[in-house]
Design a protein around this nucleic acid. Structure first.
Lengths: 262, 262
DNA sequence: ACCTGAACACCGTTCAAGT
DNA sequence: ACCTGAACACCGTTCAAGT
């Protein structure tokens, strides 16, 4: 087994309670390299930190999408050459992990009021909104569990509410997992281009119409249900669809609780 | 708006009822190019068809994973150079769409017996199994809706059962969507490496243990619930977790039905 | 109708070398 | 401690050219 000397460049980076630092001085604009910076503990703004890399990656993601997110572009965004990134980050995957948690950094847990149903409902909707609002966020987040400080803070809060609702420890843990898996899966589907439809540059609605036409054009003897439900299957109101799904899950969770706590 | 001359090389490829052809003569082994093949309708096995490309892509995927699936490798697998693929396929994305449906080709709908609950349950489990059994299948399938003949066949069958269960047209359509989004999301999570853990080459169980340690090591005053539920959150029995989620969804769907049909 | 070689504009990553 | 130039081994895609 290949063992591991697990130290990395700066072995601090402990989990501190989520607060994104939020320095608004965007790097990449100033191109003054550290020429005569005092190298002591005087803190002359190290300029390129892992935090800064995450923010730079976030901007590149917004501008170019996940497919256009390269080490070279992130490096340029931060005013440095690609090879330099490997001093701060083991590889691209690790940069994506930082990006992952940076995305979660803009999440805000819903107000703590109302019953567990309202709160869980709000959680689902806010998570979906977050994924929809950050370009390609669903693809970045899905398929990679990067428990950074931001995600951990959200999980902590969510578990607290689920237990308060009366769920057992095991049920609370699973419900939290269910929420994450479902919302990610939903948004991934929601944002996925339909292969046949990308051909036309169409809007969301045009695509739905085209998909409906596709279903209706199927041979009715082989696909009676698809032909019949063409409209329902391609209804473009994704909010309604999401709401339906969330209500199913809420009802399912309610069944775990004693009747007086539902 | 850029309009489109939408013809492609072979404009057949209509939707025929799903039957994967299943020719076991693997191409890529024989390297005899079509030297003196009769060009008429004599059918001298065209060797490289879109079907063959999909099967070749499937093999490359199994061998190298999605990250290693390149046009050059698929071309080699089929005994041809990369540039040639662009005669049969518009771009890599279109090849991935073919692969997408090829994966669905090995799906088998569950037996049509028992109540709707058992059948929906079996559908969820079989879909998950399918995604787990084909390397990186969840990643290929997620984020791309490629309604090929195989997927269409499955949707048709599934909708038929949901309507038979007593769901309205709209509800049946949404339930089908929910199933797909959830299972894809779940398996994506399930297969996703944990960033902190890939460091050790560990097995599934070792990773769970490491993740548990991570949670337990958090400052208890900031993350009381994560510390407390560390074991539940990292329980490695994914089957149990999936079953929990499926049961929630089933209960949620049951709530849509009149009591006598649940 | 189908395939090829060669090229283009990119990638992620490594490493000796600079300061 | 941090950054660089140059290189390596790849990518997807295009296109004139072959048969």
């Amino acid at each position: 087994m290949l063992d591991c000397k697990r130290e990395f460049h700066d072995s601090e980076e402990g989990v501190r309670t989520a607060m994104p630092e939020n320095d608004t001085t965007a790097p990449g604009a100033d191109a003054t390299p550290g020429s005569s910076a005092t190298p002591g503990a005087g803190a002359a703004t190290p300029a390129v930190t892992r935090e800064a890399l995450a923010q730079a990656a976030l901007r590149v993601l917004e501008r170019e999408g996940l497919a256009g997110l390269s080490m070279r572009k992130v490096a340029a965004e931060v005013g440095v050459k690609a090879a330099s990134l490997y001093w701060h980050v083991r590889n691209k995957q690790e940069l994506l992990d930082l990006l992952n948690d940076a995305i979660m950094g803009s999440a805000e847990p819903p107000p703590r009021e109302g019953g567990w149903r309202e709160q869980f409902h709000a959680y689902c909707w806010r998570y979906r909104r977050l994924l929809l609002d950050n370009r390609d966020a669903a693809k970045v987040v899905a398929g990679r569990l990067a428990p950074g400080p931001n995600l951990l803070g959200l999980m902590e809060d969510q578990l607290d509410r689920l237990r308060a609702a009366g769920l057992s420890d095991a049920d609370a843990a699973m419900a939290s997992y269910l929420l994450g898996a479902f919302v990610q899966g939903f948004v991934l589907q929601e944002q996925s281009p339909i292969s046949a439809a990308e051909v036309l540059g169409g809007s969301r609605r045009e695509i739905a119409v085209a998909a409906g036409d596709l279903f209706r054009a199927l041979p009715a003897e082989d696909f009676p249900n698809l032909v019949d439900l063409a409209d329902d299957l391609t209804a473009p109101d994704m909010d309604a669809r999401f709401e339906f799904c969330v209500q199913r899950i809420l009802d399912g969770l309610a069944a775990l609780l004693p009747p007086d706590r539902r």
